[in-house]
Amino acid sequence: MTHTYSIQGMTCGGCKASVEKHLSTLDDITSVDVNLELGKVEIGMKNHIPTNVLKNALPKKFTLSEATVKAESGNIFKVSEEEQLTKLQQLKPLFLIFGFIALMTIAINYNSWNSADAMLDFMGLFYFVFSLFKFFDLKGFSQSFAMYDPLAKVLPAYGKIYPFIELTLGICLLARVQISVVLIVTILILGVTTIGVLRSLLSKQTIQCACLGTVLKLPMTQATFIENAIMIIMATVLLVKNFVL
């Protein structure tokens, strides 16, 4: 029988080789076929192996969940409970972080509300928080980022310095330094990333979103596109309203 699983955390050929190596050591496994782009692995087995056994055989950076179980007879068995998690449940950390950033923005501007200042503060806090998670694993982030960002694919060094760029932009926004330049840079870098995200969504690739680094394993979904779009829209509105007209 052949079992098909989803795997998150793979970012390169080395990850693919690692998954194949560790799974192949288990008894009753006859074949291991990893698809890096789709984040899938097909495992041929003599006898059924519980999903938790497969998980324990892999390094902790990889998250394995059962997608479909297909026997040679063609029968399809039910997916695991973990795989049945809704997108909302999977993206709970992202929504919580967005919510906390929004609450901090409201608290900072509560006594003297100004929409332009509030948007600048929101964007600054966004860059601060999101860059923080990337700094926990700079190497892992750059590898994950290169899976979908067009510029990071061509220039690996870009992925390595990207968290520093985000941190710098956050500081400038909160300190109100070179705002027009920061807004233009925001539109450019997030515009490039959004193109990569859109391509990944359209191709239905199962890859890990690098927006919060590798600490929180988030799947690439429409929420990633919306997150970038919000920042681009804010930057465009501020640029047109305050620094062009």
Rank of each mutant, 00 (worst) to 15 (best):
V182G: 03
V182N: 05
V182P: 02
V182S: 15
V182L: 06
V182A: 09
L183P: 03
L183S: 02
L183Q: 05
L183K: 04
L183N: 07
I184W: 11
I184V: 14
I184D: 10
I184R: 07
V185K: 07
V185Q: 08
T186C: 07
L188K: 02
L188P: 01
I189K: 10
I189Y: 13
I189Q: 14
G191V: 14
G191Y: 11
G191H: 14
G191W: 12
V192L: 15
V192S: 15
V192Y: 14
V192D: 09
T193C: 13
T194L: 12
I195P: 01
G196Y: 00
G196H: 01
G196C: 07
V197N: 02
V197E: 05
L198Y: 13
L198R: 09
R199P: 01
R199C: 05
S200G: 14
S200V: 10
S200N: 12
S200D: 07
L202Y: 09
L202T: 05
L202K: 10
L202A: 01
S203K: 08
K204W: 02
K204G: 01
I207L: 12
I207H: 07
I207K: 05
Q208K: 06
Q208D: 06
Q208I: 05
Q208N: 12
C209P: 07
C209I: 09
C209T: 01
A210N: 11
A210Y: 09
C211V: 11
